[in-house]
Simulated assay, not measured.
Amino acid sequence: MNELTKKLALVRASLGEHGLGALRLRGLDWFAWMTCGGSSAVLLAAETGVAEVLVTAGGAWALTDNIEAERLAKEELPEGLTVWSHPWTDSARREAFVKEHGGPGPVGSDRPVAGEVSLPESLTRARASLLPEELERYRKLGRDAASAMTDVLLAARPEWTGFELAGAGAEALWARGIHPALTLVGDERRLPVYRHATASRNPLGGRAMLVFCGRRHGLFASLTRFVYFRPPSEEERRWVADVARVEAAALQASRPGATLGQVYAALVRAYAAAGHPGAEALHHQGGSCGYLSRDIIARPDTAVVLQPHNAVAWNPSLPGAKIEDTAVVSDAGVELLTVDPRWPTVRVEGLARPDILVR
């Protein structure tokens, strides 16, 4: 059974279980999941793209307009998913098609409009549990995103502006076929002040942080790295070590069956143990991910349960210090995806974690 067949079976089981007549998947995230890594994106900042997927008990189609139909069929869709298109001037035909081919029950959707209902929770859980084919795409994405990061920070110069570093990061991602969904840059002056240090005209100065959220085949790889153009101070080294210990606690708590709230509680305890009680309140700590940069950001009361082969990205931080990688959790432990062997590492609770790159 191939990937598309498995996913169609999951969707149709949900249709039957919940009495739905059809399912419409409109978001870039759900489109990529259903099409086994296809993309409906044109405008990268949009949540929905130029096509959607319609699944009924008896059929499955990618619905789009005549502008996009041929390209999607040739470049983005797996074998077994039919393209149906309408003139770009007449979107009413799409609604008529859905009405004609849907069953007697309501229509479910990831982004429901009038008369539609939300997706069954069981399907959301199924998406979080990555299939072997998805894991292989994710591993390749993680390696490529980490390689792009290393290339950029090996080339960076202290006189570069934040805009120049962000631009170099975006170029390196695009060169690998990765959408640069986010390229944050913190420079020497702004790093201790802002946890989300967006790129600016400031020169980098003595150190810089670069953050990637890169998307390919619908999957997101998130990672953070630091480059120093001077020796780090003792306090800077200590805080780097502290955030690594906090992250280690989160990774140890991230197992199938654990709730995101339980992982958040482990983070809180680790901050306190490292001498930074309450630091978790100054920035979100990450959460589960996959077909979004974060599917769900963990909070104290988040009851969502991690699934087998669930992707996570935790990002504990202190002023001027942060750590982040994308990983997959299973009963066997944690598999780190965003790894480049060229990057310097330190061992933290048995895992090789990114160190500062001192140039």
Rank of each mutant, 00 (worst) to 15 (best):
N2I: 04
K6T: 13
K6Q: 14
L10V: 06
A13F: 00
G19L: 08
A22G: 00
R24E: 14
R26S: 10
G27E: 12
D29R: 04
F31H: 09
A32L: 04
T35S: 06
T35Y: 08
C36M: 07
G38Q: 06
S39R: 00
S39H: 03
S40Q: 10
V42L: 10
A46Q: 08
E47L: 13
T48P: 05
V50T: 14
L54K: 00
V55E: 03
A57V: 05
A60L: 11
W61E: 03
A62T: 15
A62L: 07
L63D: 03
T64N: 11
E68Q: 14
R71K: 14
A73D: 11
E75F: 13
V83Q: 04
W88F: 15
T89A: 05
S91E: 15
R94C: 14
V98L: 10
K99S: 15
E100W: 09
P104H: 01
G105S: 13
P106S: 05
P106Y: 02
S109L: 02
V113R: 14
V113C: 03
V113W: 13
V113Y: 11
A126I: 00
A126V: 00
A128L: 08
P132A: 07
P132N: 08
E133P: 08
L135R: 11
E136P: 04
R137N: 10
D144T: 01
A146N: 00
T150A: 14
L154A: 12
A156R: 02
F163M: 10
L165E: 06
G169K: 00
A172H: 06
A172K: 06
A172R: 02
W174T: 14
I178C: 10
H179Q: 10
P180R: 00
P180D: 07
T183G: 06
T183E: 14
V185M: 02
V193Q: 13
R195N: 09
R195G: 09
T198K: 08
A199I: 03
R201S: 10
G206W: 09
G206R: 09
G206K: 01
M209C: 00
F212G: 01
C213M: 07
L219C: 12
V227Q: 03
Y228V: 03
P232V: 11
S233V: 08
E234T: 13
E235S: 12
E235F: 03
W239M: 13
V240T: 01
A241Q: 10
A241K: 05
D242E: 12
L251Q: 03
A253D: 03
A253M: 02
G257K: 11
L260I: 13
Q262I: 02
Q262H: 12
A265D: 07
A265N: 04
A270N: 07
G275N: 13
E280M: 13
E280H: 15
L282R: 13
Q285D: 01
S288N: 12
R294M: 10
A298E: 09
R299F: 03
R299G: 15
T302L: 04
A303K: 10
L306S: 02
Q307A: 12
H309T: 05
A311W: 05
A313P: 01
W314V: 08
S317W: 07
P319M: 04
V328H: 10
S330G: 15
E335W: 04
L336H: 12
V339D: 05
P341A: 07
R342S: 12
W343V: 01
R347Y: 13
R347L: 15
G350M: 14
L351E: 08
R353T: 06
D355C: 09
L357Y: 12
